[in-house]
Design a protein around this nucleic acid. Structure first.
Length: 332
DNA sequence: AATGCCTTCAACCGCGTTCAG
DNA sequence: TCTGAACGCGGTTGAAGGCAT
């Protein structure tokens, strides 16, 4: 038994949107909003379109501040880094790129960036090992995880407890002749991939200081201060965290900060839930599916720093899911 | 100029997730 | 707690334009 269709297929128009339809939809939403119901919106607006189609058209094309056209090097870098870390979670990646839609990024990746990387990889690795982009599956033999002290493994290879969430099922990594993944009892050692190095040298030259001797540290220096980054959210939140922006907190002490404090102190707004009491209004916080420019800017800058800080060696992301709170961390 | 192939990207489809009743 | 409607996501499709022959 199939799912009931979301609309009367016989009475809805399909295919490309006309300028007239665009105008009707745009004016209606700007004037009345979505009303929290996309299904009824086309009827209310007088459009012979499926609600899903309207939603897509608005989100991907009509809403304000949508950015079309060429992707910048910074955007390339962010996409590559996030793809190498989390795979084809386009909406999450899009959340880090103000004005870009998941569809946009997905198309861009599939049509251009992937090829660019493949070309770069064959160039950069000529005479050495071939670097290929492959989806990897973390071993999934533990649906429950043993707490690991991430902070006791500050040096590469990172310790990774295999996450169980389907979020990671297709996590791609760059593999070269030296295998990045090794199973070791209950933990997987993971030498983070160096996807960014596949981008052009020009793109890889960035100012944040980091060792270029191949050594790995989770500590990233910005000027005279040393900062260690991580992103954290509880499992119930990690979906939201992904959607609404990354959390960050300082782990230089090796002690995880209180979540409430993390949220309070974070420059990135976080959703409510998981015991976090402050109110969260997604519409105010992220109108039209995007953070405000200021918020976007802050997030973007943080990610830029992360991405650009360590492009040439084993910088990377570390994942783990702790059992008790099933925390998800991206550990840099 | 005509044809066929390739690339791009807007739009669709189906399914998992969320949420209200 | 259960159920169904709606949402949101990622994969796929297909029309349109560009390019080579």
């Amino acid at each position: 038994m199939g799912r009931a269709p979301c609309c009367d297929k016989a009475n809805v128009k399909k295919g490309p949107w006309s300028p007239e339809e665009d105008l009707i939809l745009k004016q209606f939403i700007e004037k009345r909003g979505t009303g929290g119901n996309w299904i009824s919106l086309p009827h209310r607006a007088g459009l012979k379109r499926c609600g899903k189609s309207c939603r897509l058209r608005w989100l991907n094309y009509l809403r304000p501040n949508i950015k079309h056209g060429e992707f910048s090097d910074d955007e390339d870098r962010i996409i590559c880094t996030l793809y190498s870390s989390i795979g084809s979670r386009w909406s999450i990646i899009a959340a880090q790129l103000p004005g870009r839609t998941d569809n946009d990024i997905k198309n861009y990746w599939n049509t251009k960036l992937k090829k660019k990387l493949l070309i770069s990889s064959s160039t950069n690795n000529s005479g050495t090992s071939a670097t290929i982009l492959v989806p990897s599956t973390f071993p999934d033999h533990h649906h429950h995880h043993t707490n690991i002290n991430l902070f006791s493994h500050h040096h590469s290879p990172y310790q990774v407890s295999a996450p169980s969430s389907t979020y990671y099922d297709q996590k791609p990594v760059l593999m070269n002749s030296s295998n990045h993944l090794n199973n070791n009892n209950n933990t997987t050692t993971y030498s983070p991939p160096n996807l960014m190095s596949l981008l052009s040298d020009n793109q890889s030259q960035h100012s944040c200081s980091s060792s270029d001797n191949g050594s790995t540290s989770n500590q990233v220096s910005y000027g005279t201060s040393t900062t260690t980054h991580a992103f954290v959210g509880s499992t119930q939140e990690h979906n939201m965290a992904y959607h609404e922006g990354f959390y960050n907190f300082n782990i230089t002490s090796g002690v995880e900060e209180d979540h409430d404090e993390v949220h309070k102190s974070s420059s990135i707004p976080t959703p409510s839930g998981g015991g976090v009491s402050h109110s969260y209004d997604p519409w105010n916080e992220r109108q039209n599916g995007l953070w405000s420019d200021h918020q976007n800017h802050q997030q973007l800058e943080e990610i830029k720093q992360l991405v650009s800080s360590n492009p040439n060696h084993n910088s990377g992301w570390n994942f783990f899911m702790a059992d008790a709170q099933e925390k998800f961390m991206m550990y840099y």
